[in-house]
Each structure stands twice: as structure tokens, then as C-alpha cells.
Simulated scan of single mutants.
Amino acid sequence: MSIEAPETKIVDSYRVACDGSEGALGHPRVYLQIAEDSGFVECPYCDCKFIHKDFEGKVA
């Protein structure tokens, strides 16, 4: 049994919202702030990683 890797999204805003992207099967909408020094934030519910476009390719 394999586990799917969390989703990664490239965004152009430092403030993002995540609701699990699965409609009724998602999670409560949360608003997340991308730190300007690290360039990314991870959703505490679904582990989706949001990377600011200025840090694309620089974040592992």
C-alpha cells in the first residue's frame, strides 16, 4: 500500500486559503500566511504545500 504525496501548489499571493479541494470531502477552510523568508506554508489539515512563485524551484 502506497501513500500519495501531498499536493503542491504554486501561488502568486503570500495569503492563501485551503479547503482540501475535495468539495464535501475536504476540510474546513483555513487561511494561511506564507512566510516571506521561507516562501512556503503547509496546510495543517491536508499537508498541501503552497509555494510562492518567487520561490519556485528553491523549496524542497
Rank of each mutant, 00 (worst) to 15 (best):
M1T: 13
M1N: 06
M1D: 08
S2F: 13
I3M: 14
E4C: 12
E4M: 11
E4S: 11
A5N: 09
A5I: 11
P6Q: 05
E7K: 14
E7H: 08
T8K: 13
T8V: 13
T8D: 06
K9S: 01
K9C: 07
V11D: 04
V11I: 07
S13H: 10
Y14D: 00
V16Q: 04
A17V: 06
A17I: 00
C18Q: 00
G20Q: 05
G20Y: 06
S21C: 12
S21F: 15
S21L: 11
G23E: 09
G23H: 04
G23R: 06
G23T: 04
A24I: 15
L25E: 12
L25S: 15
G26S: 10
H27G: 12
H27M: 10
P28V: 10
R29G: 03
R29W: 00
V30W: 01
V30E: 01
V30G: 01
Y31H: 14
Y31Q: 08
L32K: 01
I34E: 01
I34F: 08
E36I: 12
E36S: 15
D37Y: 05
S38Q: 09
V41N: 02
E42M: 09
E42D: 14
C43A: 03
P44M: 03
P44L: 07
Y45N: 13
Y45I: 03
C46I: 03
C46G: 03
C46R: 01
D47A: 15
K49F: 03
K49Q: 14
K49M: 14
F50M: 02
H52Q: 06
H52W: 04
K53N: 13
K53E: 11
D54Q: 12
D54G: 05
D54P: 06
F55C: 03
F55A: 01
E56N: 07
E56H: 09
E56F: 15
G57N: 09
G57R: 04
G57K: 03
G57E: 11
K58L: 14
